[in-house]
Design a protein around this nucleic acid. Sequence first.
DNA 1: ATCTACATTATAATAATTCTAAACTGTTGA
DNA 2: TCAACAGTTTAGAATTATTATAATGTAGAT
Lengths: 142, 142
Amino acid sequence: MPKNCNFIEKLREVGLRPTKQRVKMCEVLYNREKTFHFTINDLVKLLSEKMNQKISLATVYNTVHAFEKKGYLKEISIDSHKSYFDTNTSAHHHFFDEDTHELIDCDESDIDKVNIRKNITGKKINSVEVLVRVASDNQTQK
Amino acid sequence: MPKNCNFIEKLREVGLRPTKQRVKMCEVLYNREKTFHFTINDLVKLLSEKMNQKISLATVYNTVHAFEKKGYLKEISIDSHKSYFDTNTSAHHHFFDEDTHELIDCDESDIDKVNIRKNITGKKINSVEVLVRVASDNQTQK
DNA sequence: ATCTACATTATAATAATTCTAAACTGTTGA
DNA sequence: TCAACAGTTTAGAATTATTATAATGTAGAT
Ligand SMILES: [Mn+2]
Ligand SMILES: [Mn+2]
Ligand SMILES: [Zn+2]
Ligand SMILES: [Zn+2]
């Protein structure tokens, strides 16, 4: 309960009204130790099942995209069939577990700086991100 | 006309019947110097407008996915809202032009080998791919 | 307490993709 | 050569993810 004050302020700063739906959404998104990777459906389920917050799908979409525009969330393209979002909004690298479909942030130290030798003429580099696809080691998979 | 024989054989080898739709599709996909990156819609348009091959959307989807399963095409996740496919099926790196939404293969020499220092326990690395997002240099974009 | 701008909601609309089932066609072997 | 069959194409329906709409609700100011 007291923690929510942070979120209320946070929302205000960004120009969003701290409604109960948004505060609950903040709790789900940001009350955690580690980066949170999720789909819209993950988030709706967490809100309704774990947080007992009835909320419409449209509100979740709208608010997630509002957060994204404000730089509080980042959309990640890992699977063309689904949108993943990430509470870590910096450019960073990922492991993607192809068994569980889980996204995991790489630590800074996990991957050396990527050296780009040649760029497209007349273009500047906005971001460089690495995706490492991993899968179970002990599986018979040709 | 003589070139098509290659495609007819290619299709046969893979266990697909060399129908005129599939042969035309092969021409569009593989009769080119460089890697081809496309969306399903790009392909349908090329087939109907450039090749004068009337073809249903369902057939394009089915055949593209058949090729994908056979390892003749690879799906690329660049934009969660659209599926891109690639005639280069090896693990490789890309530039993505955020102005034109164009995907461009990196040459081997463009990017140094990516050094992964630490992996997820019990998992093996299936692929390591880099995505470099670029945009116009001379644009006012904060 | 009332007002008002903004938010929430259910529902409709749209877009991408997949499914279905009937019509069609490449291949085989009589 | 040609019927028969199995695989293929097709139009359109169904499904799924996402976005738009417009009526209703509510936070925050006065
Ligand atoms: Mn999106
Ligand atoms: Mn696909
Ligand atoms: Zn992340
Ligand atoms: Zn490519």
